[in-house]
């Protein structure tokens, strides 16, 4: 990754130079100001944020239930949820694409959002379920005894007590969605263009500096987000 960092601020850095003969911000500037990079960055950001939000909303009730159900049902549900992780990525993306074409959603924002939910949701559900299972329910019961309504309990007790897990789940969901290449390529039919797609296009003909800048633009937010989430979730002891 460091090599990419140096690559991003140099041009014509060829063998056998260990360090570039000169450093320049030119590739960085020209890539960042490229309107397509900007628009794909926004598209990717919006998409991943939307995927994350929908995933949290859908995963919340599911996780709550999962944390309370018996072993058999729980295992069955977890099995279904992790089916996509156990399928070869290329096959899954192809199948989902055909499904979206049938639904008339291929190449639309909503279609790609749905496609991204498939690999994303399981992780969010898993993080929230673990947190729900560990949570101390007596506080909620106390709040209910003290006359708090369901919404109040949710806002004042449940959500704050789940805050860490929500952050970690959101970070994980965002990163999984942000990194999708094959899924976006097929479900988006070239119409929903995220930064990862621009990077792949640049790989087939762009200069090493541009590829490096784009790589960093794709990797740094995701990496930093997960690193931060990891720190926040902290030591499990």
């Amino acid at each position: 990754m460091l090599v990419l960092g140096v690559q991003a601020v140099s041009v014509r850095w060829f063998f056998p130079e260990v360090i570039p003969h000169s450093l320049t911000l030119q590739p960085l500037r020209s890539t960042v100001t490229d309107p397509n990079v900007a628009s794909s960055f926004v598209t990717g950001l919006c998409l991943s944020l939307a995927v994350t939000s929908v995933a949290i909303v859908l995963a919340w009730p599911a996780a709550r239930t999962l944390a309370g159900v018996g072993r058999g049902l729980g295992a069955a549900v977890v099995g279904v949820l992790f089916l996509p992780s156990l399928l070869p990525a290329v096959g899954l993306a192809m199948g989902v694409d055909v499904m979206l074409i049938r639904l008339g959603l291929a190449g639309t924002f909503v279609g790609v959002l749905l496609a991204h939910l498939v690999p994303t949701l399981p992780y969010v559900v898993a993080v929230l379920t673990a947190a729900f299972a560990r949570r101390d329910q007596r506080i909620e019961a106390q709040a209910a005894t003290l006359g708090a309504g369901p919404l109040q309990r949710l806002r004042l007790v449940t959500v704050p007590s789940m805050r860490g897990a929500l952050m970690v789940g959101a970070a994980l969901g965002f990163v999984v969605s942000w990194s999708q290449y094959t899924m976006t390529l097929l479900a988006g039919s070239g119409r929903v263009v995220t930064l990862t797609m621009v990077l792949f296009a640049a790989l087939s003909g762009g200069s090493p500096s541009t590829v490096a800048v784009l790589s960093l633009l794709v990797a740094l937010p995701a990496g930093a987000l997960l690193a931060a989430a990891g720190r926040m979730s902290g030591d499990p002891s």
């Binding site: 990419l4 990194s179 590829v211 990496g223 930093a224």
Partner: peptide, 15 residues
């Protein structure tokens, strides 16, 4: 390791 996990496969391969 968390950082690495966040880096998309494509970028890791390029690196």
């Amino acid at each position: 390791l968390h950082f690495n996990l966040g880096v998309p496969h494509l970028v890791w391969a390029v690196a």
